[in-house]
């Protein structure tokens, strides 16, 4: 699917700073995420993880900093692109902390909408589609097949025609990941995918993420609170606290870093 290159990182974040008025949410953070690896960003509440995600995916424009995505022999400067361009051209897909599905639409429709740009081109910007030309019908059938593939992966085939809003919470989370994968991303950003899941569902999630990394050969960037998930599957961990990067490295190393322990247990500040 790709000729991923372990030497050059898929995503590079350099000196990222984001201010809101006087509040500094992210301060001078640099790290990189590699292709075919799972990179986790962890940190206590309010550490600036979601803000970082929003900068990456174009929902905020960073105050300072450079965000580069590079793959397929090209490079994109994410901080200069609009959110939809980042998703479409730089192929960065994301999920949201509080699941954002198209609740009134069916599960399958959610996955078809994710393939909008491809289908739009196939329908010649709706003209071919309006007259029901076979080229569009073929493209739509292919889109349904892709959707079916991901539905099988996340175990939602049986409920494909339900309203997405009626799914149980865990299924909604899985559907959101499937939807992001339907955009055929090179970097998948997941904002707390395990939040609110029971241990069994968390285990399934870990398995799914490993599958995505290994079989689809893409990079995964993960914000997570659930340490069992993080430690089990992450290749690389970045720790944020109060908007600053306090540690970085393989999970085993980060786990024993005194700075990380201090941030989580608050030994000296006594939270």
């Amino acid at each position: 699917m790709s000729e991923g290159n372990a030497a050059s990182p898929l995503l590079t974040v350099e000196h990222l700073t984001q201010r809101f008025g006087g509040l500094v949410a992210v301060s001078d953070v640099s790290f990189s995420a590699r292709d075919r690896e799972i990179t986790a960003i962890i940190g206590p509440n309010g550490a600036g993880k979601t803000t970082l995600f929003n900068c990456l995916t174009g929902f905020y424009t960073p105050t300072v900093g450079r965000l580069t995505a590079s793959h397929s022999g090209r490079t994109w400067l994410l901080e200069r692109m609009e959110a939809h361009e980042i998703a479409r051209q730089a192929r960065v897909a994301r999920t949201f902390q509080n699941v954002r599905l198209f609740g009134g639409m069916s599960v399958l429709e959610n996955l078809i909408v994710a393939q909008h740009n491809k289908l739009m081109a196939a329908s010649c910007f709706t003209l071919a589609g309006l007259f029901g030309l076979p080229s569009y019908r073929k493209a739509e059938a292919a889109a349904v097949e892709r959707a079916r593939y991901w539905l099988e992966r996340v175990g939602l085939v049986d409920v494909a025609d339900w309203q997405a809003g009626n799914l149980p919470y865990g299924a909604q989370r899985r559907l959101e990941i499937a939807r992001a994968m339907c955009t055929e991303p090179r970097l998948l950003c997941l904002d707390e995918p395990a939040a609110g899941l029971n241990p069994r569902e968390s285990a399934d999630l870990s398995e799914l993420l490993l599958f995505i990394r290994d079989h689809h050969a893409i990079g995964v960037l993960l914000i997570e609170h659930d340490m069992s998930v993080v430690m089990q599957i992450s290749d690389h961990v970045v720790v944020l606290d109060y908007g600053r990067k306090i540690s970085e490295g393989p999970s085993a190393q980060v786990r024993n870093d005194p700075a990380v322990i201090r941030a989580y247990l608050g030994e000296e500040e006594g939270a």
Binding site: T57, G58, F59, A83, H84, E85, A87, R88, A93, R94, F96, R100, L101, F102, G103, G104, M105, E109, N110, I112, V113, A114, H116, N117, L119, M120, S123, F125, T126, G129, L130, Y136, R179, A180, T183
Partner: peptide
């Protein structure tokens, strides 16, 4: 039943999610 119409409905449901899908 076409991408444009589905995108409209998706927009009505959640415009931020739409953007994140490259629409």
């Amino acid at each position: 039943r076409l991408p444009l119409g589905r995108a409209w409905e998706a927009l009505r449901e959640d415009d931020i999610a739409c953007t994140a899908l490259g629409i």
